[in-house]
């Protein structure tokens, strides 16, 4: 464990707290993509299936349970919460996710760390899917132009988590002999690259004060 990975995990937890605060606390799903939320639930339920047999550490175990629980809670409220459904914009949240899930599934089967292990295929699928899971959310924000304050912090924290993981991988690559995780490195790079445009507008809007809303062209 190094500071970059710890901060990355904390940023990930923060993104969940912000989203739960908005959806469950604020009873509003305005500007939030259910498609992204559902893809993240798929990502965690597939990647963390090794909860059943892998106890790398209590820290990992607890956070895996937290991420699965939080992502399923978000999907549940967005699908069945009366006020959340009323504020969720289904026709704007229209990104064709089948064009994301299918290629990731094919890639997961073809490119993974052990072609004889179904878990490795599922694990690789979840890594690839996470890299693109944010696209419906960014697509929705682009469509709406203006990003509500809490939503902008949620997306920022979610983007920052994988950016911090990139620093974590660089640190581990430099300090641990023969450490390499090409699948997660490349996917993490793609994932973080997708946020660059948002990061730029987030920074532009927040340098005038944290409560300014983010405007996307």
């Amino acid at each position: 464990m190094n500071i970059f990975r710890f901060l990355g995990d904390m940023s990930h937890i923060l993104s969940f707290l912000l989203l739960l605060h908005k959806i469950v606390g604020g009873k509003s799903a305005a500007g939030i993509s259910l498609r992204t939320a559902e893809m993240y639930a798929i990502v965690f339920c597939t990647r963390y299936i090794d909860l059943l047999w892998n106890f790398a550490s209590l820290y990992n175990y607890l956070l895996k349970l937290l991420f699965i629980g939080a992502s399923l809670t978000i999907v549940y409220f967005m699908r069945y919460g009366p006020s959340q459904k009323a504020t969720y914009n289904a026709d704007e949240d229209a990104f064709p996710v089948q064009y994301l899930i299918a290629p990731c599934a094919v890639l997961g089967v073809l490119i993974n760390q052990d072609h004889s292990s179904p878990f490795e295929m599922v694990w690789a699928f979840s890594i690839y899917l996470e890299a693109v899971a944010i696209l419906p959310q960014l697509f929705l924000l682009q469509k709406q132009g203006e990003v509500e304050n809490l939503t902008s912090h949620y997306v920022f924290a979610l983007g920052a988590y994988r950016a911090l993981y990139l620093l974590n991988w660089m640190f581990r690559f430099m300090t641990e002999p023969d450490y390499q995780q090409r699948i997660v490195w490349l996917s993490g790079l793609v994932q973080t690259a997708l946020y660059c445009d948002f990061f730029y507008h987030y920074y532009q809007s927040k340098k005038g004060g944290l409560n300014k809303s983010v405007k996307l062209p």
Binding site: R5, D9, H12, D50, N54, A56, S57, N60, L63, K64, F67, N112, Q113, D114, H115, W123, Y165, N168, Y179, Q180, Q181, R182, I183, V184
Partner: peptide, 10 residues
């Protein structure tokens, strides 16, 4: 085919 890396990260 990449050799197995332990999955110690989230």
């Amino acid at each position: 085919e990449e050799e197995e890396e332990e999955k110690d990260e989230l």
